Amino acid sequence: MTFHVAVPADLRIGGGSLSQLPDVLRLRNAERPLIVTDAFLTSTGTAARVVALLEEAGLHPALFSGVVPDPTTVSLEDGLAAVTSHRADVLVGLGGGSPIDTAKALAVLAVRGGPLRDLKAPFSYDGPALPVVAIPTTAGTGSEATRFTVITDSDTGEKMLCAGPSYLPVAGIVDYELTMSMPPRLTADTGIVALTHAVEAYVSSRHNAFSDAVALRAITIIGRSLRTAYRDGADHRARGEMMEAATLAGIAFSNSSVALVHGMSRPLGAHFHISHGMSNAMLFAAVTEFSLSAADDRYADCARALGVADDSVSDADAAAALVRELRALADELAVPTPERFGIARDDWEALVPTMAEQALASGSPGNNPRVPAASDIEDLYRAIFRGDAR
């Protein structure tokens, strides 16, 4: 059996690594970086700090701060104009998943052109693109190390997964100090999504020896650090470990795949504007329980790596312990049900068939240990609405 491993050519990981950004760009002979970020990071001064860092190094940066949460094809239009007007030779994605996903999409569209829907999965794009340097400011998406971007089609409302080697950043700056101000809610949601990435990469039918090792390491780190980071955001050790784990989990799923949780979570963001992290957290325990019978041994490995089971118990018991732990995490980290989030039952029920269809169309459920039918996905959506699956 052979498998292909792809990771960014240059990852700088650790507190204070942001200062190395000029060196990263010089190594690529880049002179005109466009910083792709959002209004929040502009308001906090983080974006201005990056601009100043690059100007002091003699580079010629520009700033595009028009990224929106859950970016859409329409929201990319102003970004493309900014790339063109600045004559950018590299894009610097600064922020959480939305700015980095936006930078990846812009990098491809600026060279190839659109429409982006032509590139959605299962199509894999390996053509020319501008280089992307990713600087995450949350510890969750792992987008700095993945070959994917997620953009909502403004015409259809579909949250499109676009994949391929051309979306992989050439470099990533993983500086946990940029996450120190994350509030508990964001810490919880991004932390659970990192755990979801690692577990799904490990149980996916497309897993391999490399992704297995990286995924289990990420799970172990998250098991000892997530609760601490949630309760005490000033804990440098926990923040640093969660940032490292998020990147490892991103590497794991980029070289394996995600599965049913992600397939089901994207429609929640598209239709109900639930954040990616929270939608994963709403689904995680229920989908894992649904899947156990097809991969008790691999879910058991995850439970042991997480620290909620050991070798003295059977694989079936260890796998069941994982589900209990995911439910406990959802409770301790105050993950709401869709109903408590504020969604009306009638609105939810009306979209269940459409969401199930979109989940299946993404391809991710096909990687799940237990491959669901549309009716299974509909049942899971109904079960999580009021927390029946907790």
Rank of each mutant, 00 (worst) to 15 (best):
L216C: 05
A356H: 02
S204D: 10
L178W: 02
L80R: 13
K159L: 07
Y299T: 00
T190C: 11
P8H: 00
T156E: 07
I13E: 02
R324E: 11
V335T: 08
S257V: 12
I151R: 13
H273N: 07
D301A: 14
A246W: 02
D296K: 15
L168A: 06
S225Q: 03
L25C: 00
M264W: 02
D153W: 12
A281S: 14
S375P: 01
V133M: 02
F3A: 15
E244D: 14
L21G: 01
V313T: 09
A328L: 09
E241D: 12
A305H: 05
W348T: 00
I377T: 01
S154P: 08
V371Y: 07
I219V: 12
V36R: 03
A171L: 07
T44A: 07
L195M: 09
C162W: 11
A285K: 00
V174Y: 08
D101I: 05
A309C: 01
R28D: 03
T72F: 10
T220V: 08
G263S: 08
R370C: 08
Y167V: 07
H60D: 15
D232F: 13
D38G: 03
I222H: 02
T141Q: 08
P115Y: 11
R345T: 11
P8V: 01
S19V: 02
I151Y: 12
A295H: 00
R206A: 09
G223V: 00
R304V: 00
A194R: 08
I35D: 03
F284A: 06
L54W: 01
I343D: 07
P128T: 05
Q20L: 10
D38M: 02
Q358C: 07
L226S: 02
L80D: 06
M355Q: 01
I135A: 10
Y167G: 06
R49F: 05
E56V: 14
A286N: 09
G233K: 04
G93V: 04
R266V: 07
H276C: 06
I135Y: 03
D78T: 09
D311M: 07
P372C: 07
V261A: 13
F284Y: 15
L333K: 06
T179H: 11
G66N: 04
F272G: 01
R298V: 00
D232Y: 14
L380V: 11
G191Q: 08
H86T: 12
A194T: 13
A252R: 03
F272H: 00
A198V: 10
V323H: 02
L292T: 01
D70C: 11
A303R: 02
A334S: 10
P369R: 02
A145P: 04
E378Q: 14
V287W: 05
F3M: 06
C302V: 04
G307H: 06
V51E: 08
G363W: 12
A238F: 04
V74R: 14
